[in-house]
Design a protein around this nucleic acid. Structure first.
Lengths: 144, 144
DNA sequence: ATGAAATAGTTGCTATAACAACTATTTACT
DNA sequence: AGTAAATAGTTGTTATAGCAACTATTTCAT
């Protein structure tokens, strides 16, 4: 990689694209009155996929800080979409579960999310997807 | 783009990589006691490049919300790195300028930033850089 | 010339992000 | 057994992000 590219900002474009993507998703959520944020959706998606999950595991799945997970869950619990259940085998642990209302919310929002992904990838090939994945992996791997 | 890829989360990996990148930069800044955040650095870099800039222009350069710019500048002004100057031709406008201390900070931090970019791009080719740029542009262009 | 609309910037509010400090509990060591 | 270390989770604080509402000023329309 020559210095020409070192001169260019490296995370600026990533940041700008991600913000645009996130805002587009959020506006679509808001327009359809889903009453949920993009990150709350990401958390719920993982709770749907992984049952009997702890805060720590969820933080790993979503690549979020455990403190951030704790606060997002506060909001989801307040909305009645998620339940916290104290573990009996290890009393430090708290298991997380979507409530019936949470499952309803998931099935309600899911089609919109698939459509948004379709829009985001429009005009890109599978090779592009693989390249993007690989490049991001290399960047992440370059960091300790 | 087949449905296989639609199933995969689209912004999750972008978000995860960006967070890792940003944290690595921040930790490097902190370790060398640069006493500045990554986004504050991005703002200063643009103020160095573009003289007599307004808040609005700076928001455009950095792809940040003007309210975010307003608050980042509050911090930079408090640190004595940036000066706000009321415009005489249009009294709504405020011109921004690095103070001498701000220029010193810029020249102090700049080499570290170049090194961090070098690390981030390690193992990637110029073609990778071009592909990444193109793919991100297509994604951004897919959104209204 | 005057009122409406547009523009530049700030402030209030809520959400996400990261670090540090904290509580409670469990595991490991001797 | 008893203490130290590790682990799960919460809370406090600061920064960034975005929206809405606001002030002050300028431009536009008639």
């Amino acid at each position: 990689m020559s210095d020409t590219f070192i001169i260019n900002p490296s995370f600026y474009k990533l940041d700008a694209t991600l913000k645009k993507l996130r805002n587009h998703w959020q506006q679509a959520f808001d327009k359809q009155q889903k009453d949920i944020t993009v990150d709350q959706w990401l958390v719920m998606e993982n709770l749907y996929k992984h049952t009997r999950t702890t805060h720590k595991q969820l933080a790993h799945y979503t690549d979020k800080d455990i403190t951030t997970i704790s606060r997002i869950l506060d909001l989801l619990v307040k909305k009645g979409l998620v339940m916290r259940q104290a573990s009996s085998d290890d009393r430090r642990k708290v298991y997380l579960e979507l409530t019936p209302a949470g499952v309803d919310k998931y099935t309600d929002v899911r089609p919109l999310v698939l459509e948004l992904r379709r829009i985001g990838w429009h005009g890109l090939s599978e090779k592009d997807f693989e390249d993007l994945t690989r490049i991001l992996d290399v960047i992440a791997h370059n960091l300790p």
